[in-house]
């Protein structure tokens, strides 16, 4: 799947590209407005990561152009502008998601995964992954044809891991994903541990392979 990273900070663009490349994504980079316009006009992408403040023009104009050309590329805005106004404006014009800088790369991967999922019409809303069948709309997990009951948080975590296959995810990134804005009240990672422990146990009980692994000292990894 093709991803276009429109970001004027080369170091950030490079990190994103490096993190996403490999498994399932092919990344291209545009570092300014004209480059971005050219690429979006010429090619189709499964997902475009769009920084709003670009040298040479307003990132929102790229979004406008995409929608005017009836292009179906998924768009995730990545911006330092965190204000609600920008968020609403971006989503109104047709962005699929909005992520405020700074963000964790696994979080970005999860958003991209979800946007691409929603955009693909040929696909049903079911992800098949080895013995796991994940129904995104119904938020249901079936393992070996047996329904596994997960809480909302556990289901969310599972999707997060699936969209970051073979990547080490730090406890910090997980905590921020689970807790969102209120992550700063975290005294320790007990809550994160608890959720992951439960998910692991439910998967194991259902006879699922041991994909979710603890990486000693740093975090977790969905290893396949």
């Amino acid at each position: 799947m093709k991803i276009l990273i429109i970001e004027d900070e080369p170091q950030l663009a490079q990190s994103i590209s490096e993190y996403l490349s490999g498994e399932q994504y092919l990344c291209e980079t545009a570092i300014n407005f004209p480059q971005a316009m050219e690429k979006t006009e010429l090619y189709d992408y499964d997902c475009i990561l769009l920084d709003l403040m670009l040298p040479g023009g307003d990132g929102l104009k790229i979004l406008d152009a995409l929608r005017d050309n009836k292009k179906q590329d998924g768009v995730v805005i990545i911006s330092a502008k965190g204000s609600l106004d920008d968020k609403i404006k971006g989503l109104k014009i047709g962005a699929d998601d909005y992520l405020t800088k700074p963000f964790h790369l696994p979080e970005l991967a999860a958003r991209i995964f979800s946007v691409i999922r929603r955009k693909s019409f040929d696909n049903t809303n079911v992800i098949i992954h080895h013995e796991l069948e994940i129904n995104i709309l119904a938020k249901k997990l079936v393992v070996n044809r047996l329904l596994v009951s997960l809480t909302k948080k556990e289901f969310d975590l599972l999707l997060y891991f699936i969209s970051n296959k073979n990547r080490v995810i730090s406890k910090n990134a997980l905590a921020e994903h689970i807790l969102g804005d209120i992550a700063d009240m975290l005294e320790n990672y007990d809550i994160v541990y608890a959720h992951i422990k439960n998910l692991k146990k439910k998967l194991a009980d259902a006879g699922c392979g041991n994909y979710l692994k603890t990486v000693y000292g740093s975090g977790y990894k969905w290893d396949v």
Binding site: E9, Q11, L12, S15, I16, E18, Y19, A80, G82, T100, K101, P102, F103, H104, L105, P106, R167, V168, I169, S170, A173, V215, Y216, G217, S218, G219
Partner: peptide, 25 residues
């Protein structure tokens, strides 16, 4: 925001290194 985002992304990336020792993690 942007430099913080760069540091954040680099740390996330660093974590992917295959041969990280426990101490490094």
């Amino acid at each position: 925001q942007t430099p913080l985002a760069v540091i954040q992304s680099k740390l996330d990336l660093f974590l992917q290194e295959a041969a990280l020792s426990k101490r490094q993690s």
